[in-house]
Simulated assay, not measured.
Amino acid sequence: MLLALMFASALAGAEPTQGATAAPQRVPVSAPLKPGERRVKMVCRNEQKANSRVSVRNCYDQAELAAREAADQKMLQEIQMKSPLN
């Protein structure tokens, strides 16, 4: 407890530096792109692993997500087309 009080008093007495008070500059979305750069639309989803209640936030670019969904759809169709009697 005393240690926590000592740290709190030390932090309260410290003066902030000028760099810490300045907010980082934000780049507007409509800023011009440099050569070789491209804008990417991101899509984020909360996904759960199999047999788990813990969800993880995964972000994908829109093209990657469309390709992933197409591959998943194709795999599902292949599984459904297979006869269970083979």
Rank of each mutant, 00 (worst) to 15 (best):
R45S: 05
Q48S: 11
L2F: 06
C44T: 13
P84D: 10
Q62S: 15
A31I: 04
Y60V: 01
R45D: 03
L5C: 10
Q48W: 15
N58L: 12
Q73S: 13
T17F: 06
R45Q: 13
A23G: 06
C44D: 15
V27R: 04
A31E: 12
A12K: 07
Q77G: 08
A4R: 09
A14K: 09
N51Y: 07
L3P: 06
Q25W: 07
P32G: 02
M42T: 12
D61L: 00
K41E: 15
R39A: 04
G36C: 01
M81V: 05
D72E: 13
A70T: 07
P28T: 00
S55A: 13
P35T: 05
M75P: 03
S30H: 12
D61G: 03
N58G: 09
G13I: 01
S30A: 11
A22N: 15
V40S: 06
A71E: 13
M42A: 12
Q77K: 12
V56Y: 14
L33G: 10
R26T: 09
I79W: 05
A66T: 08
A50M: 10
Y60W: 14
M42D: 07
R39L: 08
P28W: 04
V29Y: 12
Q77V: 03
C44H: 05
A4Q: 08
V40Y: 00
R68Y: 01
M75C: 10
Q80W: 04
R68H: 05
Q18H: 07
Q48C: 12
L85C: 14
A67Q: 07
Q80S: 06
T17L: 02
N58I: 14
K49E: 14
Q77L: 11
M6C: 14
Q77D: 15
E64K: 01
L3R: 04
N46G: 12
V27W: 01
A31L: 02
V56G: 09
P16G: 05
Q80F: 03
R53D: 15
A20W: 10
A67N: 10
V43L: 08
S30T: 11
A20I: 09
T17N: 14
A50L: 13
K49D: 15
L33P: 01
L11F: 15
V43Q: 00
G19Y: 01
G13H: 04
A23R: 13
A66S: 08
K82F: 08
S55T: 12
A8N: 05
